Every structure is written in structure tokens, then in C-alpha cells.
Computed example of a mutant assay.
Amino acid sequence: MSGIVGYGVYIPSYRIKVEEIAKVWGDDPKAISRGLVVNEKSVPAPDEDTATISVEAARNSLKRAMIDPKKIGAVYVGSESHPYAVKPTATIVAEAIEATPELTAADLEFACKAGTAGMQAAMGLVDSGIVEYGLAIGADTAQGAPGDALEYTASAGGAAYIIGKENTVADFEGTYSFTTDTPDFYRREGRPYPKHGGRFTGEPAYFKHVLSGAKGLFNKMGTEASDYDHVIFHQPNGKFYIRAARKLGFNEEQYKTGLLTPVIGNTYSGATPLGLAAVLDIAKPGDRVMAVSYGSGAGSDAFSITVNDRIEEVREKAPKVGELVANKNYVDYAVYAKFKGKIRMS
């Protein structure tokens, strides 16, 4: 099967603390932090969007892949916050990294798992021999209505993966998906903020799909939790992530590296890809990794991955997740609201 040839990430430097948001709405910040397992989140600058985040992540992935971008035959950008309703983000990225014109490109949307859907599509094209390399990106500048619980978690960031067969840093062993029509979260055309069906959010939505996706991969691969050195899950909040890990038999040593929600919030389509990148930043050759995404609506994509020796050759060639997490500048709620366009003229 194909593997990861290069990976790159981007996280905006601006942050807002849970206490700052709670102060505006009269909530208890300690209860919020404890309940959601989140302390602060990333905030996109006024000149940052899914396209700029995707371009930065893609350029960083090329630094590690060390390939001619003209060899990339497919570009997929998964997001639920594409800057244009009609105009692909993928073509902007492809042009910016000088991969055009001989390639196929498309935007994907499946709530928070559009990035991993792109990875699967790229894997298929590479494994079939249709393209030499495919680029899959998961990125978002997530929306949360003023005063909504999503304001505490909806953040910004993304990760890009170049997939191919030669000179890989990690290899795909298998993938498995689990999908149903479960209406836990949606946003209609033209609406600025999403709606979430509270009673659907946990058990029939997130946990049913994440656990089923993971167990399906276990069955397909003949593995169990103890066979993996690291595991990553989609992380709408830290609480769901940890609960899913423990339900499947993983311990803290296995799941802690990929848990980024406490420090950058939920980057939606970027969440699982960023968590995987954080693991690749520290993984040793031979380590086995499991990654399970989740997208409302609803579905999960699960991957079994083995890290190989080349990871140590390329790791330092682009910014690591931890470096971007540490590069932060705090803003207050007024600046945050301005950056996110929450203040609108009637």
C-alpha cells in the first residue's frame, strides 16, 4: 500500500483563553475547562482562512517530502469553512505550491472528517497507479455562534499529507470507514453558524461512529489496542477523546501525544490530521499508530500506520506541531470577535 511521503502543519499564533470567553457570557471558566478539557484555543488572524492555512501546511509537507510539486497528481482540501461557496480551495493550493496544471483537484466536505476522506481518496489514486503522489489537506477556521458552547472549542489550523509509494516516512497498513445518516450537527447554505443536536452529539453520533470505526479496523487488521504505540481520535473536546480512548483499551501513554484540544481547541477537519502530525513529530521507526477521525452527519475513517526509518531524516525540515503550539499571542474577546467577524452591521 501507499504511505506518507511528507507531512506539514500550520496553526495560527493567536489564542484566546477559556476564562476570557467565560467572562463575557457569565459562565464558570473552571467548570468549562474541566467539562470540555480545553484551556484555550487558536484564533485565525483577519488575513488567515482555510486557503492560507492549507497553503502553509502544504508547503511544509513539501519540505519533508522533498519532491517536485509537479509530480503531485491530485490535491484534495477537506474543510467545512472553505472561503468560497463556489470556487475551490484546492486550486488555490495547487497553484501556490506550483503543482498545476496537470492534476486533478477538488474540495471535500464531511464536517470534521473531510481531511481524512481526502487521504483515503489520495491513497486510492496512488495505489491504483493513476497518480504518483496525492496531496490531502484537512483545515478549518471553525465557526461558533456568540454565546454558544462551540465558542469554547471551535478553532483554526490544518495539516497536509503527501501520499505516495516511494521514500515514505510512514506506511498505511489498512483503513476502515463507518458511516450513517445521523443529524447531530449541520449548517445550511448562507447561515454563518452551525446548529448542533445536543441529544445526538455523544452516544448515537461521536461514540457510535468512532468506536465502530476503531473496532472495524481492529477486526480487519487482526489487532487490538495493545498492538499500537500511539492512537489519535477526533477531538471536539478533550473529554470525548479521552473517553473513546479508554473505552477501546488505550492508556494515557498511547493517547496523550495526539490530544491537542486543551491547547488549541477543535480544529475540525484539521483535528485528526494535526494529532497524527504531533505523533509523527516524536514517533520512532517501527512505531505503530492508529488514527480515527469523526465527521458529523456522520462517519469515521480509521487508519493503521507504521512509522519507518525515513521519519528521522525529514522531521526537522519543517515546523513541528509543538513549535506552532508554543508560538502564541493572546487576544481579548473584543479582538477575537473582530478577527472572527462576529460583529456585523445590520
Rank of each mutant, 00 (worst) to 15 (best):
R315W: 05
E313I: 09
L103V: 02
A149I: 15
A334L: 12
H82N: 05
R288F: 01
S177V: 04
K328I: 02
T116Y: 05
G164T: 11
A57Q: 06
E189T: 08
G258D: 09
G134S: 10
T306Q: 12
Q254N: 00
L280I: 13
I32A: 11
E95C: 07
G222Q: 04
E313D: 15
D309A: 14
A298D: 11
Q120K: 13
P46L: 05
V43E: 07
V18L: 04
T104A: 13
K195S: 09
T175S: 15
K342P: 07
A156N: 05
A205W: 03
G190L: 02
I343Q: 13
K215R: 13
V131L: 10
A160M: 13
D227P: 01
R243F: 03
A74C: 12
P44I: 12
L36E: 07
A111F: 03
R315H: 05
D301K: 05
S33P: 10
F178C: 00
G249S: 05
G147K: 06
K328R: 15
Y176S: 00
I232P: 00
G8W: 13
Y255N: 01
I130A: 07
E80N: 13
V93M: 08
K247C: 02
D148S: 15
G341C: 11
V9I: 15
A106Y: 04
V292A: 12
E95A: 14
I53E: 06
R315M: 06
E20F: 00
G124N: 14
I53F: 10
K195I: 10
G174K: 02
I242M: 00
